[in-house]
Design a protein around this nucleic acid. Structure first.
Length: 457
RNA sequence: GGCCGGAUGGCAGAGUGGUUAUGCAGGGGACUGCAAAUCCCCGUACAGCGGUUCGAUUCCGCUUCCGGCCUCCA
């Protein structure tokens, strides 16, 4: 079955085929490192991680090159560093490290390359020079601006024309712009802010330029997939297209544009001013990263997703059920290549449908009588789990959590005491111990093979 | 104002021109000293109004409501 993806460029699902039949190249807009990442930032990272896994599954792990940038030069960074009284380099290093920890906890594979803007200034200035030379950019008052009217196709991705943009403009047009729609490629930097020497004086790049330059360096002038949040369609991706296509003498830039929907929190847009700004770290205090990941995948990536505590706990309980079933077949080897989720994910990453398939396998596994059936269904579940980035932990470690050995020994001692009480039918004492442990979040399970325990969520 | 998406049972959330997913919650039952888990049974929902059709939740139009974008934004 072919992989189909919804292409923002054409506004329809298209069959995916890489430009180079054996190798896939994908670029996703990464974080601007000035503050902790929030769950809205987490969505594209998770969504495109699933796509990355699907592509690796289909083309081979060594045949997919995934680039996700880190924006480490930006006005918001400058402002945050000033506000904290922290050197800019310290802020970006600290924030980038936190981002890596956060997304690793969410089960996301690292990209193959993670280019940083500050390490790609030379390719950026080269691109600006090429744009000036070809008449697509001009210098004005120390700025270099992209001349939007020089590109007839401008606005194709976001489906808007120049006149509409000007009519709807909310911002004052800088006086040095030849055309109100023109945007900054390079701007002057005062001595107290990061800057690099350039033919146009000491300055720093405009926001859109880095993605054009870094994708060219790492993926080439034309590549397969470019992803990011819905809000990046305009202006960011529109401007990337303009820069890259014009700098590359009209060569196409990206074949598939993919955009994820927004995350709201309890029905409201997330904003610091609203007081509902939820960072990944906040979420990880409430539930394991895998639960947060699953919660994120319960909606289709293009639809809006409302983040609630219920959604997170439900995801956590769902994983409990899966791991409980997997624990029951721990001694059965996994066989088969029957990831049911694959078919659903092939259809524009339909993760909710994929999860429904997993639930069917789960029910079948719970009912399975023979070892062969169990083995096959366990394999199907784990294979699907690889694609979604879930169910890869040891069931025991998921169910017992990160308890210290001494804590576990203490629980085992309590269990032994309770079983002794049960043996003499002293159920009052047995229940006292059960309740005691329950208060600590420990759930005892009496089974035919003895008593086990897990952490209840 | 312009452009683009949405509206499915208590909640979450797929899908389909006719047989109406899946999960949670809820009700009943089996199992169980209790508990948990598991299994079985139970819900004909697709914003409203027109149209096309033998038949529409699914296609078309209009209306209402919600959301995103219009050079900070995942």
């Amino acid at each position: 079955m072919a992989l189909t993806l919804y292409n923002t460029l054409t506004r329809r699902k298209e069959e995916f085929a890489p430009l180079d039949p054996a190798n896939v190249r994908m670029y996703v807009c990464g974080p601007t490192v000035y503050d902790f990442a929030h769950i809205g930032n987490a969505r594209p990272v998770i969504v495109f991680d699933v796509l990355y896994r699907m592509l690796r599954d289909r083309y081979g792990a060594g045949h997919v090159k995934y680039a996700r940038n880190i924006t480490d030069v930006d006005d918001k960074i400058n402002a945050a560093a000033k506000a904290n009284g922290e050197p800019i380099a310290a802020l970006t290093a600290r924030t980038a490290a936190a981002f890596h920890e956060d997304v690793a906890a969410l089960g996301c594979l690292p990209p193959d390359v993670e280019p940083r803007a500050t390490q790609h200034i030379a390719p950026m200035t080269r691109m600006v020079e090429a744009l000036i030379a070809s008449g697509h950019a001009y210098v004005a008052e120390g700025h270099v601006l992209f001349a939007v009217p020089s590109m007839p196709d401008y606005g194709r991705l976001s489906r808007r024309d120049r006149d509409e943009l000007i009519a709807g403009a909310r911002v004052e047009v800088a006086p040095y712009k030849r055309d109100p729609a023109d945007f900054v490629l390079w701007k002057p930097s005062p001595p107290d802010l990061p800057g690099w020497d350039s033919p146009w004086g000491r300055g720093r790049p405009g926001w859109h330029l880095e993605c054009s330059a870094m994708s060219e360096v790492h993926l080439g002038e034309t590549f397969d997939i470019h992803g990011g949040g819905l809000d990046l369609i305009f202006p960011h991706h529109e401007n990337e297209i303009a820069q890259s296509v014009c700098a590359h003498r009209g060569k196409p830039f990206v074949k598939f544009w993919l955009h994820n929907g927004f995350v709201t929190v309890n029905g409201a847009k997330m904003a610091k001013s609203e007081g509902n700004f939820v960072t990944i770290r906040d979420v990880l205090k409430q539930a394991p990263g895998e639960a947060a990941r699953l919660a994120m995948l319960t909606a289709h990536y293009r639809d809006p997703l409302d983040w609630t505590a219920e959604r997170l706990t439900e995801a956590k309980r769902t994983l409990d059920r899966f791991y409980l079933a997997l624990r029951a077949v721990e001694d059965v080897p996994a066989t088969g290549q029957g990831a049911k989720a694959r078919g659903a994910l092939d259809d524009d990453l339909n993760t909710p449908l994929a999860l429904a398939a997993l639930h069917e396998d789960l029910a079948a596994l719970n009912k399975a009588q023979t070892r062969a059936e169990k083995s096959r269904l366990k394999g199907a579940l784990l294979d699907s789990g690889v694609l979604l980035g879930i169910l890869q932990q040891e069931p025991e470690s998921w169910l017992k959590g990160a308890s210290s050995d001494s804590g576990a020994a203490e629980i085992e001692a309590q269990i032994a005491a309770r079983n002794a009480a049960r043996k003499v039918r002293n159920f009052a004492e047995a229940d006292r111990i059960r309740n005691d442990l329950a208060l600590k979040g420990i759930l005892l399970e009496d089974g035919p093979g003895g008593t086990t325990w897990r952490r209840a969520g």
